[in-house]
């Protein structure tokens, strides 16, 4: 458990102001919360994306910690190189401090184009935290579909139209893919439940090996909701079970938070413009399908928790 007042004193502000993310952006909230997970010095990498472009417009950088951007699909391999350099120089006595390593990628850079690099880095066992700030589409270039875009969402490359209800595939389960690498720690979190997120970040930074955080991160431009309502939107993702707050700690799956009663998925979909078309009469069956998918995913996770708990 984290204490907000202690955090405000102990943790230096590592991402400073003056970056050019949109007003009300979820990415910087997620980054700030994740970086509250350690007091040690941190070196950060980001894949190409909103976070990277808006925080490092030359000659300005919002990063108060060492930061590198390399390309879109290689945040995980770039941090592999940095972490290996650290181990090499540390064993030669050229570096004395204990340093933590973190790589950020959006869902495009993590679920899609950077998945191979991520998988490789996890398999090799580098000691780093990988954070996918998942805003469910390629938001940097104007909301194009990704492997993380949910079923039924309208994006600019899978738009809703007369012949299509938006994206016609369900999203891929990156957290499960990552967990299949049997790394020490993997978790899903979102910004509304900050204490859950910071606690998971603390566990991730403390892990003896690769750790992964999949953070549902709202984008009001792509999701189309009033910018000030970000925390409420995040909360509805949790309360409807759309984004289960789970962790996989040394192979054991666990819910870190369970709403007393899961709310209907409409509560998450309704305030967002990207799902507006689903509320037309002819598309209502899609909402039912989404609800069914959320229910079965929840059930699957409960089974996983139960089964992995027995094995542990």
């Amino acid at each position: 458990m984290a204490n907000i007042k202690e955090l405000s004193e102990k943790i230096p502000e590592r991402l400073g102001p003056g970056h050019r993310l949109c007003a009300g952006c979820g990415a910087s909230i997620a980054v700030r919360q994740v970086l509250m997970g350690t007091e040690d010095p941190v070196v950060a990498v980001s894949a190409t994306g909103c976070l990277e472009v808006a925080t490092t417009i030359y000659p300005y950088t919002a990063w108060k910690i060492p930061f590198m951007h390399n390309a879109f699909e290689n945040a995980a391999s770039t941090i592999s190189g940095i972490e290996s350099a650290y181990r090499a120089l540390k064993k030669q006595g050229k570096i004395k401090k204990n340093i933590k390593f973190i790589a950020f990628g959006g869902d495009g850079g993590s679920y899609d184009i950077g998945l191979q690099a991520l998988s490789g880095a996890l398999e090799r066992g580098h000691k780093f935290v990988y954070v996918c700030y998942d805003n469910e589409a390629y938001m940097n270039t104007g909301s194009q579909r990704s492997g993380a875009t949910p079923y039924g969402a309208s994006t600019t490359t899978a738009p809703a139209g007369k012949a299509s209800p938006g994206k016609v595939q369900f999203r891929k389960d990156l957290t499960a893919i990552v967990a299949a690498h049997r790394i020490p720690y993997a978790a899903q979190a979102t910004i509304s439940n900050w204490n859950d997120l910071v606690t998971k970040s603390q566990k991730a930074f403390a892990a003896e090996g690769p750790a992964f955080l999949n953070i549902l991160t709202m984008c009001h431009r792509g999701w189309r909701y009033p910018q000030e309502n970000i925390v409420q939107i995040a909360k509805s993702a949790v309360d409807t079970g759309f984004w289960p707050l789970i962790e996989v700690d040394k192979g054991t799956w666990r819910f870190t938070y369970k709403p007393k009663e899961r709310k209907p998925i409409e509560e998450f979909l309704k305030p967002q413009g990207r799902f507006k078309h689903l509320f037309k009469e002819e598309n209502k069956h899609i909402i039912a399908e989404i609800q069914k998918e959320v229910d079965s995913n929840w059930q699957r996770l409960e089974h996983l928790c139960e089964a992995s708990c027995k094995v542990a």
Binding site: T56, H69, A85
Partner: peptide, 14 residues
């Protein structure tokens, strides 16, 4: 160096 945490630098900006 990226590992010089006391003198943070940014590599690869936009």
């Amino acid at each position: 160096s990226l590992l010089d945490v006391d003198r943070p630098v940014t590599y690869g900006p936009l």
